[in-house]
Amino acid sequence: MSVAAVRDRARDLVEARIGEFSERLLELARALHAEPELSFEEHASAGRLADLLEGAGFAVERGAYGLETAVVGSYGSGDLTVGVCAEYDALPGLGHACGHNVICAAGAGAAIGLAAAADVLGIRVVLLGTPAEEAGGGKVLMLERGAFDGVTVAMMAHPAGHDDVDARSSTTSASRFEVTFTGRSAHAAQDPQSGVNAGDAAVVAQVAVGLLRQQLPDGYRVSGVVRDGGERSNIIPDRTVLQWDVRTPTAEELDPLKKRVQACFEGAAIATGCSVEIRPTQPDYLDLRNDPWLMAAYAEGLRAVGRTVAEPPAQPVRLGASTDMGNVTQALPAIHPSIGILGAEGWPHTPEFARWTVGAAADDAVLAAARAMAWTGVAVAADAERRAHYLSVRG
């Protein structure tokens, strides 16, 4: 068959398989929304995804790469491996306000659809169920443990209020760490001179960080909370615990900012006589670097399923949020476009948006993203020159 004939045949197979599984995909999205689970606790969600993949003929590994709620499903064989990422963790108090239920169902649909054309295209399809995107960096852990070693290209689609297929769109790099000040407790009225006030250390540190903000470039962000500030007003606290995030536009800028912020905590310890421990609470998230060719193929797929894809703006969008998919895009050719839940109100991570991640508009987003991602895989596999390029990039 000609290249065009192979591509058309593969797309027909993809379309038929996604149509066959469409109701099961939507049931998955709705079930995850109804039973949200936090990072590294997504046992029911991971189980539902694994069951669906097994029902579609995938070889499935549960608890993959040493992570209880990671899932890896594979289908087919070939020199080119198309990886699709699925997230399914929710937010504390907000449920699926980031739409990971949509991500999971769309990713499963893309992998299942693409598997139907695996033999025609001579490819292997891998669905990577990646836990703890909201807090914990499941993709980073899986990347470090070899989950992406055999993957040629990777993709996922994240819900938003509109479709975004601009390859220049990005997120921030982020580092999250916990700071513990340790002093010595004493009665605040009877024996204050014997105390070493860990609460004072927290205050000094926050003032120092606040003053530092004046000197930071645009696009840098520093935020934090006091998680443990003492028990009673008449007892000088001997321990305070703070959680802080630092964000920069690029990965290269992250460590220098982190050192400046952490110096504020070290200085506060010196000033108050406390000791300080600073420890990361998750791997650093790196900024997204989308592959332009893959993104263009995804945009073509969206148009093919009837979506109106706007022209990219003059200036690229850099979201203030961060994602561990950024690490994947810096390790191999990959994309993280937005799939619009059309008509949705509010931004992701808000109660308003949570209400939109289930329902007719969310259903449409699941199936549109599944088809567009699957067709992106077809486009890569059917284009001999592009296929060879990505295989050479991955060695």
Rank of each mutant, 00 (worst) to 15 (best):
P131V: 00
A296P: 05
D166S: 09
I339N: 02
G136E: 07
E35Q: 15
H33L: 00
F177T: 11
G122K: 07
S77A: 14
T152W: 06
T248L: 00
R184P: 02
A160S: 15
E68H: 12
L127W: 11
P280L: 00
L302D: 04
M142H: 09
R176Y: 13
K139M: 01
L367D: 05
V305D: 08
R289V: 12
E41A: 14
Y65R: 09
S392R: 15
C274M: 07
A344I: 00
P313G: 14
H349Y: 13
V60I: 09
D166Y: 08
E41H: 13
R184Q: 11
S2P: 14
Q190W: 07
W347K: 02
G83L: 05
D324F: 02
L121F: 08
E133Y: 06
V60D: 08
T81Y: 02
A157Q: 00
V276F: 11
G230A: 12
E20L: 12
L128P: 01
G99N: 09
A106C: 09
P351R: 06
Q193N: 13
I18F: 08
P283D: 07
A296M: 09
F21T: 11
L342I: 14
A160K: 13
R260A: 07
V358D: 05
D149H: 11
S77V: 10
A331M: 04
D364T: 13
E231H: 13
A110N: 02
E311P: 05
E37V: 00
A157H: 00
Y390S: 04
R260Q: 10
A251R: 01
A361S: 15
T323V: 13
L254F: 00
A167P: 13
E41V: 00
L294P: 03
V328D: 04
S185K: 14
D89P: 01
P256V: 05
E35D: 15
V380P: 02
R30E: 13
A365H: 03
V203A: 15
L91G: 03
D284C: 04
R232Y: 08
E20P: 03
G150Q: 08
A10S: 13
S175L: 13
W356D: 01
A381V: 10
L52R: 04
A188Q: 10
A361C: 05
G326A: 07
G107C: 04
I270S: 12
S185L: 07
V328L: 12
D149Y: 07
A108E: 10
A86C: 13
R221F: 09
G137F: 04
A251Q: 07
I236C: 05
E23Y: 03
L127D: 08
T152R: 06
M142E: 04
V71A: 03
R232I: 02
E311A: 15
E27P: 03
G95E: 00
S175V: 11
D79V: 12
A10E: 03
L80H: 03
D51R: 12
Y75A: 10
A118G: 02
V126A: 02
A388F: 11
E311K: 14
L91D: 04
E300V: 12
A167H: 15
H389D: 15
W375H: 06
S45C: 10
P312K: 14
A331G: 00
A118I: 10
R11G: 09
D218N: 06
